[in-house]
Structure formats: structure tokens, C-alpha cells
Amino acid sequence: MRRWPAAWRLLAGLALYGVMAGAAAMIENAYLMHLLILSCIFAVLVMSQNLVTGYTGLLHLCQAAFYGIGAYASALVAMKLHVGVPLACLVGTGAAAASGLVVGLLSIRFGGHYLAIVTLGFGVIVNQILNNWVGLTRGPMGLSGIPAPPEIRLVGLAITWTPYTYLLGGLLLVFLTYLVLARIRDSKVGLMMEAIRENELAAACVGIRTVRVKVVAFTLAALLAGPAGAMYAHYSLMLVPELFGFLDSANLIAMAVLGGLGSFAGSIASAVFFTVVPEMLRVAGEWRLVIYGGLLLLVVLFFPKGLAGLGTLVWERIAGACGRRSSQPLMGEGEARGAP
């Protein structure tokens, strides 16, 4: 793939951010605004899930637990220790990263479905702690009264927190996460991760310290989920354990797969799509989640490479129509039909 110079990419990123910020300013519907903020948070979570599942090839079923730890740690530190919200967010991020490190260390001994069950178990344990340690987390009643972030004063400019500024913050978080993850993907560590995904034994044989890379992948995924959690906590100002359960982790891995494993852009698209679409299905009332479940099933059945695969397909068609020879075979097609 042809790459632009770094400065150009930075400029392009800034321009894109500006365009999005401008477009967001035109949104008047408060509910849509809320959905877009949630989409930003989910985009960050799904991208970091993709680092572990899509790039390193590890079945990881507790992303929602990392997210929950980030959210609860940040909220509790801000509430009980009365430190400022920015510091609390940092603490939340640290706590999430630490939990990622623990899961990463556990992953040393396990692979495949064993790793899946260990991460799943970790998620269940975290969720039970959030539910049952009523003295600290108020359990199923939920944590309310979380402080909102303070005004930001920048050279005489006071920025107050409205849904619009939250959305700007969320977008910034998505851009930064993408930047970090893209850097990692293109670095040596990223190559090592892909080597592990393709064949762990072979990767170890050429001298890759597979254990270290796997621990790094988990820690990074949690580290990036931390700010998303903290942002959710100080945005919604109310937390309940149900937001961070097994089904939420399952949802995140589903979004990562549906966006396309190994495509961060696909992750963003699928996070937005699968956050906004179920809400639009509210017109379908109680059938909403039934349709959502069916949709998950159908997308995997008919677009096994996810939205990114669909994007490639459409791109190849357009390129083909414009007379360019496609450089690579259509992703997914052969495998979809020719599965043994």
C-alpha cells in the first residue's frame, strides 16, 4: 500500500477532525448527539479489541470488564478522594491497564478456547465484584452523583461541557486511539503480533518473544479501554454493573469481527453502525434486540470479512469498473464458498 508522508497524514487527520467537528456542530437532535458520543466510546473499545483479536489472533472476551474497571475506578476516585476529574481519568486508565496486565500474564499459559474461557471468567469475576461489593460500588443500584469534568480555561477561553464538547472529546479520543494503534500496527511490535496470529510456534522459532508481545497486546487493549470507560463515567454521571457484563464483551468482539478483523477503520465503522442501528430500530420497539441478534447472524453468514471486507469488495468493483486491474483477489470470497 502506498503511504503518505507523516506530515501529510497529520494534516489530513486534522482536516478530517475539523470537518467532523464542523458537521457535529450542525446536529440539533440531542438524542443523535448522545448516540454519536456512545459511538466514539465504542469505536475506541472495538479498535482495541481488534488489536488483541484481529492482529494478535487471541480470543479475548473481557473487553467490557477493562472498560468497566476504567469507568468505575475513575468515578470512585473522583467521588471518594475528591481529586479532580482529569486525575481521576488517569487513575482509571492506570487501573484498566493494570487489569490488562493481569489478564495478559494469565494468557501466557493459555491459547485458543482456553484463553477465551479465562478471559470470560475474568469478566464474570469483575462483574460480580461490581455487583456485590455494595459498600463501594452500590451494586445493582448503580453509582450516581459522579462529578462532571470541570471547565477548561485555555488562554481566556472557557470551555464548558455540553454534549457538543463531549462529542469533540470523544472524536479526539477516537483519533488519538487510531493514531496510537496505527503506529503500533506499522511498528515491529505490530508485525510480531501478526506473526503470532499466523503461527505462534513459527513466530517463537524466529525469535519473537511471543509471551511478551501477547502481554503487551492485552495491556494496550486495556490501557485504551480505560479512557473510554472514564469518559463514559464522567459523561453519563451514572454507572450500573449491567453495562459491563459478559454480553457486553460478547457484543464488543462481535463488533470487531463484523467490522473486519485486522481493520481499525472497519472497527470504527462497525462501532458506529451497531450503536446507531439498534437505536434506530427503537421504532421496532421490543423487537429491537431480536432484529439485532438476527443481524449479527446474517452479517457473519453473508459478509464473513465484515464491513471492511464489504468496503474492499465495493472498492474493487469501482476500481474494476474504472478499468483498473485489481491487485489482489477479492477478500473473503474464496474462503466463504470454499470452506471445507
Partner: peptide, 11 residues
């Protein structure tokens, strides 16, 4: 894995 999660949510 994903289809079974989808089927599970559906049912």
C-alpha cells in the same frame, strides 16, 4: 462464535 452469540441474543 459470533453467529452463536447472535442466535443467542435473538432467541
Amino acid at each position: 462464535l459470533i453467529t452463536s452469540i447472535g442466535a443467542s441474543i435473538f432467541l
